[in-house]
Simulated assay, not measured.
Amino acid sequence: MNIERVVMAFAGGMILLSLLLYLVHSPYWLLLTAFVGGNLLQAVFTGFCPLAIVLGFFGMKTGMVFDRKK
């Protein structure tokens, strides 16, 4: 797996987890959903993603996730 796939999987997992916790525990878990969505949106415009930086530090390689020319 490459950095882009891990970031998308992590973000999707966090959103689903926060929605489950919202249903089971407290509506305040929707703040985590908003945080993850906001972070994804700012990463599109700024190119800054903390998780991608950490994964790169540990040696994970970047890839062309949506490249259909394979």
Rank of each mutant, 00 (worst) to 15 (best):
K70Q: 07
G47K: 09
I53R: 13
L32E: 09
L41T: 01
L32K: 03
I53A: 11
H25K: 12
A11R: 02
F35W: 06
G37I: 02
M64N: 13
V44E: 04
H25P: 05
L30T: 00
A9H: 01
E4L: 01
G37A: 11
L17E: 14
V6N: 00
V24G: 01
M60P: 03
I15K: 00
V54H: 11
V44H: 04
V44A: 00
A9N: 06
I53T: 13
T62Y: 15
M1V: 11
V7T: 06
V24Y: 14
F57L: 11
F66P: 00
G63A: 06
Y22K: 14
L30V: 02
E4C: 02
G37R: 02
I15Y: 05
D67K: 07
K70S: 03
S18V: 12
V7W: 02
G63L: 11
H25Q: 03
S26F: 08
L55R: 08
T62D: 02
T46K: 05
I3G: 02
L19M: 15
K69L: 05
L55I: 07
M1A: 08
L41C: 09
S26W: 12
S18L: 14
V65C: 13
C49S: 04
L19N: 13
V65M: 03
I15V: 13
L40C: 02
I53G: 09
R5S: 14
Y28N: 01
G63D: 12
R68M: 04
Y28R: 01
R5I: 13
R5M: 07
L51T: 00
M64Y: 12
L23C: 15
N2V: 00
Y28W: 05
H25C: 10
T46F: 03
V44C: 00
S26V: 09
G63S: 03
M8T: 07
F10H: 07
L40A: 04
G12F: 07
G56N: 06
L30Q: 05
L51Y: 03
L17S: 14
D67H: 10
K69S: 06
W29R: 13
A52E: 04
M1Q: 05
E4W: 13
F35N: 04
G12M: 03
A43H: 12
H25Y: 05
V6E: 12
G59Y: 05
L23T: 15
L16I: 03
L41A: 08
L16T: 06
L55T: 04
C49K: 06
S18Y: 15
I53H: 03
G63T: 03
L21A: 15
G38D: 12
G13S: 14
M64E: 15
T62V: 14
V54G: 12
L21W: 08
I53P: 12
A52I: 01
E4N: 01
H25I: 15
I15L: 07
L41G: 11
T33N: 00
F58W: 15
D67T: 01
C49H: 06
N2C: 04
L19Q: 13
V44G: 08
I53V: 15
N2R: 06
M8A: 08
A9Q: 11
F45M: 00
A9F: 10
L16Q: 07
R68Q: 08
L31I: 02
L17V: 10
F10R: 15
M64K: 14
G12R: 01
R5A: 14
M8Y: 08
